[in-house]
């Protein structure tokens, strides 16, 4: 479970162009659910996701991770909630790498290297044996039906295939939480539906999934557990779909 209490994120503090992306958000996100953050662009949903995903730190407020079930090097006892707000960047990176998987609006694949290497990339720095990582990556690629492209450079992939490779990359470190930012923005309706099917599969595997989107295909989908509607950095509406 993730709890946010009074989280605020401001940019360019103290300067004339200061603006607040997220204002005083308090929220509880239960595990193993699909939560959609809905709202127009600039509503603060991406900023909120970067805060949860340990990519940036809130200006004020606290974010806690509960019962992750993953031992973190500096906190062996997984039962104690982990306060991520005050941690130094090094630790945030470790948490980000082991607990979160990210799917971006653009697929953000690195061109020129093979599909397989792209999927393996997040695991390179952990010091794991590459042969082991490659085995896992191939399993993931198989799961998403793109294993035949494993040795090809990523530029040869179609949009939908690239999206699936990006999801496989998000899963390589077997994260508990998947964060997807506008994942269907560059996909047509058919591919967006396919994406939601993949999400439902991930949910079945017990992952928590957070999606920022203003695409009806996403927030009207039957697999969504909860929709959080945002505008101007605050939560307008928070409802359980089922």
């Amino acid at each position: 479970m993730i709890t946010l209490s009074g989280v605020t994120k401001a940019f360019s503090c103290g300067k004339p162009n200061e603006f607040t992306a997220v204002t005083n958000v308090t929220l509880e996100i239960p595990p193993r659910q699909v939560t959609v953050f809905k709202g127009p662009s600039g509503s603060g949903k991406t900023s909120l996701l970067t805060l949860i995903g340990c990519m940036s730190r809130p200006t004020s407020g606290r974010i806690q991770l509960h019962g992750l079930g993953v031992p973190i090097p500096f906190q062996e006892d997984t039962a104690v909630p982990l306060e991520i707000t005050g941690l130094p960047e090094r630790f945030l990176t470790i948490i980000r790498r082991s607990i979160f998987g990210f799917v971006f609006q653009q697929c953000n694949l690195i061109t020129g290297i093979s599909v397989l290497e792209n999927v393996m990339l997040p695991a390179y720095t952990s010091g794991e044996r590459l042969s082991e990582v490659a085995r896992r990556a191939l399993l993931l690629l198989e799961q998403f039906g793109v294993a035949r492209h494993a040795r090809q450079p990523v530029e040869l992939l179609s949009g939908g295939e690239a999206q699936r490779v990006a999801i496989a990359r998000a899963l390589i470190n077997n994260p508990a939480i998947i964060i997807a930012d506008e994942p269907t923005a560059h996909l047509d309706s058919k591919l967006s539906q396919e994406f939601m099917e993949i999400v439902s599969g991930l949910k079945r595997d017990g992952k928590s999934i957070l999606i920022a989107s203003h695409d009806p295909i996403v927030f009207d989908s039957g697999i969504i557990d909860r929709v959080v509607e945002m505008r101007d950095g605050t939560i307008l509406d928070d409802r359980s779909v089922r």
């Binding site: 290297i113 290497e117 010091g127 044996r129």
Partner: peptide, 20 residues
Amino acid sequence: IRTGERQRNILEFALSSLHR
């Protein structure tokens, strides 16, 4: 071993990055 392996993994990526 993990440190050594990390170095080698990053070297591996550096090489394929140069290869591009």
